[in-house]
Nucleic acid binder design. Structure first.
Length: 113
RNA sequence: UGAGUGUAUUGAACAGCUGCGGGCAAAAUCCGAAAGGAUUUGUGCGAGGAAAGUCCGGGCUUCACAGAGCAAUAAUAACGGCUAACGGCCGCCGGGGGCGACCCCAGGGAUAGUGCAACAGAAAAUUACCGCCAAUUUUAUUGGUAAGGAUGGAAAGGUGAGGUAAGAGCUCACCGGAGGACGGGAGACCGCCCUGCCGUGUAAACCCUAUUUGAAGCAACACCGUGGUAGGACAUAUAACGCUUGCUCGGCGUGUCCUUAGGAGGUGGCAUCGAGCAGUUUUGGUAACAAACUGCCAAGAUAGAUGGCUGUUCACGACAGAACCCGGCUUACAGAUACAGUCACACC
RNA sequence: GCACCCGUGGCGGAACUGGCAGACGCGUAUGGUUCAGGUCCAUAUUUUCGAGAGGAAGUGCAGGUUCAAUUCCUGUCGGGUGCA
């Protein structure tokens, strides 16, 4: 089993869309909500608007890579949902990583230092 | 040299660091009574020619089934072969296109029947409006006639000659079509001869003929299956509480165990053996393909694995991501390479 | 995986037994009515060439059948629906 926990149920996604804080940038949308456990959980949404299968997988991979890079610096006890947008498959991972860092910083879930 | 045709192959390469999903191996640690599981380490593997569209054909699975028939807005449609099978492929015939290499074609039946052919035109399937000819009589009527005019996509085989009152396959020659005989071919069909003069088109209108199709699909299906549901057995101080009638008895709810089917979830199906892939190979065949020999078979997830960063090279990278598995078809696609023909120009 | 439906002017939506494509409504533009606006009335309104008369193209796209296709057939692209 991997150390990364993913969200699977539609229930969890809808809860984040409804009650979570959202942050928007041209390549990424982030929803953040506290959960009751000590774990960090995340999910990725790539809708039909992003493109066909190749573009959707590409978007998913880039977002996942960015999340793995930031993972050690995130405080525990939060759920995240990342939504890909039309430009995501064409962006470099550093761009995504920058955007995600900005979002998480604004939400105050990054560890100090 | 330029233009164009067909067939086949290929679908950027290399190195380092760091990640992801399976397989195998052994050791160590942890959990567990055990079976086993988790972590770490090593090793090797990890998207396509279309993985796509889901348009066909199978394998596999479950259901149905004595045999036959009917139905279906079902599919196919010259002939011969190949194939496990096909609506696919190869060859060939007929038709069409191109100077040519070559390419394209749903290509059965209209004397089984029914329907339709707008407008125009006299008439759209047994047709006479104008015209032509004859007769009567007188300026109209009757009869003959499909050569000419006009309409139309299409006007009753076409062209020419004879013939006639005028005309007409009425007669003849050639062409086209139909029927028949002979010859060639495995066959579609082709060649040639004779008869003879024939009511148009549409079946991608209904239809007729021939052939094929039992139904559904891996979310199939098989196994396990907390809770809850249904059925049965037992238990109880005949205890407590609630309901059933105010009371008593009785019954139900209650507890334990067993059984049937089964939703969520899990495991198998599922991935190394198959109609498998490859070959400057051999044999048969024009070819599709078949046979023999040699070699190789390491994606297998379950919210769904190939990413990120750095560097180098070049033609600066298109279309695009496996989801039970195969054989085709169709569609998308930057380019690169090889082979075999063709045409034009120039030179020898 | 299986079954099926729909694409027509700027928008909705007719024309479906093959026979003049754009009926009808909305919107838009111009003019009239009004002191002004609305309402109402009239005209125009697929694109393109043309001074005009008129010509050409055109029913998602590409082909085919037919004398003739929005209609019939095949392929394809896009959008949508149902079942498991």
């Amino acid at each position: 089993m991997s150390e990364y926990i993913t969200l699977k149920d539609n229930r969890d996604f809808s809860r984040l869309y409804k009650r979570g804080k959202s942050f928007v940038s041209p390549v990424l949308v982030t929803y953040i909500l506290k959960n009751k456990s000590d774990n960090l959980r995340f999910g990725i949404t790539t809708g039909k608007k992003v493109g066909k299968a190749v573009k959707r997988t590409r978007a998913r991979r880039v977002i996942r890579a960015a999340y793995y890079e930031l993972y050690p610096n995130i405080k525990s006890g939060y759920d995240f949902v990342f939504v890909a947008r039309g430009k995501t498959p064409y962006a470099k991972s550093q761009t995504i990583c920058c955007a995600m860092k900005k979002h998480l910083k604004a939400a105050g879930v990054l560890k100090e230092g």
